[in-house]
């Protein structure tokens, strides 16, 4: 597996959606490729940050609405 191929399926790899053989191939590539490992860490971090989004409060009567 080359870098381009590995990076194109990060999303599915992260979700565990790849078939087991392909998943192992990606894992193997990450173990041996410093560049892709860093890239995957940043990819993962983006998702972790996104997941930190908190819910909004329900609007209450009396609170100013958007103009």
């Amino acid at each position: 597996m080359n870098c381009r191929r590995a990076r194109s399926i990060f999303s599915e790899y992260y979700d565990g959606m790849l078939n087991p053989d392909l998943g192992k191939e990606v894992a193997g590539h990450l173990a041996g490729c410093f560049g892709c490992r860093g890239e995957f860490e940043r990819f993962e971090m983006g998702i972790k940050i996104f997941k930190k989004l908190k819910p909004l409060s329900r609007p209450r009567p009396g609170r100013a609405k958007r103009a």
Binding site: S8, I9, F10, S11, E12, M17, R42, F43, M45, G46, I47, I49, F50
Partner: peptide
Amino acid sequence: VKTDLHRGRRLFRAQFV
């Protein structure tokens, strides 16, 4: 779904990075 999710996640991260 796979394609949009992959692109969306990359794009979102790119905005931060």
